Simulated scan of single mutants.
Amino acid sequence: MSIPALGLGTFRLTGQTVIDSVRNGLEAGYRAIDTAQIYGNEAEVGQAIEASGIPREAIFVTTKIWTENLSRARLIPSLKESLAKLRTESVDLTLIHWPSPGDAVPVAEFMTALAEAKAQGLTKQIGVSNFTIGLMQRAIDAVGAKEIATNQIELSPFLQNRKVAAFAASHGIHITSYMTLAYGNALKDPVIQAIASERGATPAQVALAWAMQLGYAVIPSSTKRANLESNLAARTLRLSADELARIAALDRGERLTSPQGLAPVWD
């Protein structure tokens, strides 16, 4: 099962806000929802999916295992708790949200536990998030590259993460981009605004189309239905080689997410 190119993110959305966002997204045509244990919204996401009336098998659901649940003893029980909240017997993709701080739980331990969760039918695919090249190699050594569906990383026009993306591609590992719009900074960039104006598109559509055209999946979030609907149009926007090159030149290694005590040493 391939990972949808455009999904709906739910980071920082809780309570009725996330219920409304997921409902609006599903009504607009989204069929992929990204959540995580640490977001504290799995129950609301599950409620919104169930209430939508859309068959569960038509929606690609991703969740992520938090660092406190990475041990062999905790990983599968915690995923079962997530499934109960999400009101589903299995999710489509389960990721390791962040590598274990200080390597407290070895990569081999949590990756083999995650592979066991897949073997038990709790998740259809498995992957990682916020993994460097070195961590990806350790995950590959543990379960094999074919078992790792994606590495979900911060990736935007200003942080293009080319080394990590190239390593992943060389092993057949898909890249999912989060924060593709760089907390809205991409919408204010003159180059992206100019391309959007030339194309009669929005800056968000241009940035999302750029990432998808490079082969990455994107998971933007929004609390506004108009933005959710507009972002979907990025799927049909094809940028020229010149436009892609103009955006490629925006890379400045600007990382916005690097929590102290949690983030690895980045490539």
Rank of each mutant, 00 (worst) to 15 (best):
S2H: 07
S2A: 11
I3G: 03
P4E: 09
A5D: 15
L8I: 01
G9M: 15
G9H: 11
G9V: 09
T10Y: 06
F11A: 06
T14C: 07
T14W: 03
G15M: 00
Q16V: 11
T17Q: 13
V18H: 07
I19L: 05
L26E: 12
A28L: 14
I33Y: 10
D34V: 03
I38A: 08
Y39I: 02
E42K: 04
S52I: 07
I54H: 10
I54A: 08
A58P: 01
V61P: 01
K64V: 01
I65A: 05
E68W: 00
L70V: 00
S71K: 04
A73S: 10
R74D: 15
L75P: 09
I76L: 00
P77F: 08
S82N: 01
A84Q: 02
A84C: 05
S90I: 03
V91M: 02
L93E: 04
L93W: 02
L93K: 01
P99G: 04
V107H: 10
A108Q: 10
E109V: 14
K118L: 02
G121C: 09
L122K: 01
T123L: 01
K124W: 00
I126W: 01
S129H: 03
S129D: 03
T132D: 13
R138M: 13
R138W: 09
I140R: 04
D141R: 09
V143F: 08
G144W: 04
A145S: 15
I148N: 06
Q152T: 06
Q152W: 09
E154H: 03
E154G: 05
L155S: 14
L155P: 00
Q160N: 13
Q160F: 14
Q160L: 12
N161G: 04
K163Y: 02
A169F: 06
S170T: 00
H174Q: 12
S177H: 10
Y178N: 00
M179F: 12
A182L: 07
K188P: 08
I195Q: 11
S197E: 12
S197T: 11
E198S: 15
R199T: 07
G200A: 12
G200C: 11
A204P: 14
A207N: 11
L208Y: 14
A209P: 14
W210A: 05
A211G: 13
A211D: 14
M212Y: 12
Q213F: 08
L214C: 09
Y216V: 03
A217Y: 09
A217P: 06
V218I: 07
I219A: 08
S221F: 14
S221Y: 11
S222E: 07
T223D: 11
K224T: 14
R225T: 14
E229V: 15
T236D: 13
L237N: 01
L237R: 03
L244G: 03
R252E: 14
G253V: 08
E254V: 02
E254Y: 14
T257W: 15
Q260I: 13
A263Q: 07
W266I: 07
W266E: 08
D267M: 05
